[in-house]
Design a protein around this nucleic acid. Structure first.
Ligand SMILES: [Mg+2]
Length: 429
DNA sequence: CCGAATTCG
């Protein structure tokens, strides 16, 4: 990107303000990133973590991008606390809140419950009127309707872009007594294309109708969008500042009995464990999600958090089955180092045969959302489960696992830097 | 949120 000298100076000043770099250093950094402010900031701060409450100083910067979306960036330099967390993250954090009109998100994506049992085709009604690139009004109907063009369209992850049309029977919403669950780190920390990405994520929910959804890296605008468009679900969030986790429960199938948030005492990234107790088809089910400490450098803290959550699974009532689904940021070695999974605790991917198809949930060799040049992949997103310890049915059995969010959107991005994990379970009586 | 480079005490 070419920049005028005065524009360069302005950006340099801004960048120096935000980063506390000297002006020449700031200019150098910006040059390194082709004067792309977002990229330069991302690269400089590496990763947004840490506690906003520990902030020492605060600076407000308004950035108007070329796409005219106004972003409010609060930068907080944390005190260089000499704790022994041994976690080599930056002592600096960027809190980003989107100050954009609600209208930038699509409005009328409404997830509705099917009126009848059986293979009801899910149909998308695309009303692309005067503002094709702005807001596309989307209504998901229960019954097939004809478009003006006289053709039937079935919703896909990309449906709102009108790219894909698939067979009407590809995702029948049949009740076979099983449970469908989605876990996805939606990368709310990246604001690029977030409205489109949010729509794609909600379309994935509309497509697969999971009974449970576990999200990580939810930010307020995404939560609001989600709440608006998943009216058939209970929404429980794991926090309300910065980014946090969330669990959706399909109201028609799961009762929300209670929920609790377990803090990780030494997290520096405001991470915690969200637990929801539900009852589904006669089974007491304890659902958990978390976004364990990020980055390789924080392996020790991450292992502490893993032990904490495994202990919580262990301590769940005997009569209750437990499923954890979340972004663990784990490397295999970190699990074996703490002695592997405890007795009766299983990793769903392993139980289903360790398929290479679903191994990597974060893969920069395919997913270029983050613009990393080095290609690497990890199985960050995992599902752990423990059966109820008494022998009374129903019994929860893993059936299948697949990845979602693997197709590029119109904006060329993927919905997130993580793939979503879509898991099916059988309930055997 | 990688890996390698850079910076700093
Ligand atoms: Mg992330």
């Amino acid at each position: 990107m070419e920049c005028q000298p005065n524009k360069e100076n302005e950006l340099g000043r801004l960048f120096a303000d935000v980063t506390s770099l000297s002006q020449p250093e700031a200019i150098k950094w910006l040059q390194k990133h082709s004067w792309n402010l977002q990229k330069a900031l991302d690269s400089y701060f590496e990763f947004a973590g840490g506690s906003a409450k520990a902030s020492k100083q605060k600076a407000d910067v308004d950035i108007v991008t070329e796409t005219s979306s106004s972003k409010h960036i609060e930068e907080m330099n944390q005190e260089g606390m000499q704790d022994n967390s041994g976690c080599g993250v930056e002592e600096t954090e960027i809190m980003i809140t989107i100050r954009q009109s609600d209208e930038e998100f699509a409005e009328d994506l409404t997830v509705q419950e099917p009126k009848s049992e059986g293979a009801t085709p899910i149909v998308i009604d695309l009303v692309s009127d005067d503002e094709p690139s702005e807001i596309e009004e989307i209504t998901i109907l229960d019954d097939a309707v004809e478009h003006d063009e006289g053709q039937l369209e079935v919703i896909t992850e990309n449906s709102h872009f009108g790219l894909a049309t698939v067979s009407a029977s590809n995702e029948p919403d049949v009740d076979d007594g099983g449970i469908t669950m989605l876990s996805w780190n939606i990368d709310g920390l990246d604001l690029e294309c977030l409205p489109q990405r949010s729509r794609a994520i909600c379309n994935t929910i509309a497509l697969h109708r999971p009974d449970v959804v576990c999200f990580q890296e939810v930010i307020d605008p995404f939560r609001d969008y989600l709440a608006k468009h998943t009216k058939g679900y209970h929404l429980v969030t794991g926090g309300d500042e910065g980014y946090y986790t969330a669990i959706l429960l399909k109201k028609s199938r799961l009762d929300l009995l209670s929920h609790e948030i377990i803090p990780y005492p030494t997290t520096r990234m405001m991470r915690n464990l969200l637990i929801v107790k539900t009852r589904v088809f006669g089974l007491d089910l304890c659902l958990m999600t978390s976004h364990l400490e990020s980055t390789r450098a924080c392996a020790k803290e991450r292992q502490k958090q893993l032990k904490c959550l495994l202990e919580k699974i262990h301590l769940a009532p005997q009569s209750s089955a437990v499923i954890f689904a979340g972004d663990t940021n784990l490397r295999d070695k970190e699990v074996s180092e703490i002695g592997g999974l405890p007795w009766r605790m299983r990793d769903m991917w392993v139980t289903l045969g360790s398929s290479s198809e679903t191994q990597y949930t974060w893969d920069t060799s395919v997913n270029d959302n983050l613009g990393f040049s080095t290609k690497s992949h990890f199985r960050f997103d995992r599902i752990y489960f423990r059966a109820a310890l008494d022998l009374s049915p129903p019994k929860l059995l893993p059936r299948s696992l697949r990845l979602v969010g693997t197709e590029r959107l119109m904006c060329k991005m993927f919905p997130s830097d993580h793939w979503g994990l879509l898991a099916h379970w059988d309930l055997v009586h």
